[in-house]
Design a protein around this nucleic acid. Structure first.
Length: 276
DNA sequence: AATCGTTCCTGATAGC
DNA sequence: TGCTATCAGGAACGAT
């Protein structure tokens, strides 16, 4: 499932391939995934546009064109972007295909079809998505701001980390790993965290996400949600997973069993000994 | 303003 | 065997 590190991996690879490419044709095979747009008009309007830059914010991919229009892609849980130097390899999960004048192609392939694409005119770019919180990669995760958010939140810590309007880009796998490594129980109420714990959490968020980016993401789960990068290659971070999907197995630190609980309908995995 | 439950989708898996 | 029910996940949305 693509979270921040997986999306960052894809974005870095896309940047190398896509900047300067001109769109020859767009073929939309699953129109319902295009939000706020008429799919037929999108196919027409994207034609001949040249890509200027690729960026990421949270788990969103932003593709900017030379005429200041923008394409935003969200992979949700099973979305994949697959590059080909020639024609794409179409299967039943191919949802939108981008053909370039160079002969290369990019396909948006998405088993569960929950991913979204949005085309935005320049004047629409600023005001269409819900508010995104602090960007956790690099030096942007400011301690004071994080502390303020945590201390005024009534959420438990797992829900806090998943709330994109607080810290943006963390999903179910990394939220669980971060809480394990920070030694914080997923049901801990945010406002009960000590200053020391908040500092530990801040460091752990940055460390885990940066390490996962270095490992080019986590490839775990069933075929549908099992991450692959732009060239269909697995990440490496699954080798370092401590708690996710390990219910009943031994904690790698203390040998106690890993528990699974449900919070807001999502699975949380944790060690009852290491996380108080 | 913050938080919660529901919805979207489909392959895998569990249960009968 | 073959069927049905449930689950997984992120974010938008409406309700509280």
């Amino acid at each position: 499932m693509p979270e921040l590190p997986e999306v960052e991996t894809i974005v870095r690879q896309l940047r190398k391939q896509l900047v300067g490419q001109q769109i020859k044709k767009v073929k939309i095979l699953r129109p319902s995934q295009w939000k706020q747009n008429n799919p037929k008009s999108v196919e027409k309007v994207l034609k001949h546009k040249t890509i200027q830059s690729i960026n990421r914010r949270a788990k969103f991919i932003y593709i900017d064109f030379e005429d200041d229009c923008q394409l935003v892609i969200h992979l949700r849980m099973s979305g994949k972007l697959i590059w080909s130097d020639s024609d794409p390899k179409i299967d039943k999960y191919s949802r939108t295909i981008f053909y370039f004048t160079s002969g290369s192609s990019l396909q948006f392939n998405d088993t569960r079809a929950l991913g979204t694409l949005v085309f935005l005119l320049p004047e629409k770019k600023d005001n269409w998505q819900t508010k995104l919180g602090l960007e956790p990669l690099g030096e942007d995760l400011d301690f004071e701001k994080l502390q303020e958010l945590i201390q005024k939140s009534k959420l438990d810590m797992k829900s806090f980390l998943l709330d994109q309007s607080k810290v943006a880009g963390i999903g179910n796998i990394y939220a669980g790993e971060i809480l394990f490594l920070a030694g914080i129980h997923p049901e801990r109420k945010a406002l009960t965290l000590t200053e020391k714990e908040i500092e530990k959490l801040r460091n752990t968020i940055t460390l885990v996400l940066q390490l996962a980016v270095d490992k080019m993401g986590t490839s775990l789960g069933d075929g549908a949600s099992n991450f692959r990068s732009l060239y269909n290659i697995e990440g490496e971070f699954q080798k370092m997973i401590m708690v996710y999907d390990r219910e009943g197995e031994q904690c790698f630190k203390c040998k106690a069993p890993i528990f699974r609980i449900k919070q807001k309908g999502r699975s949380s995995y944790f060690c009852g000994e290491c996380q108080q």
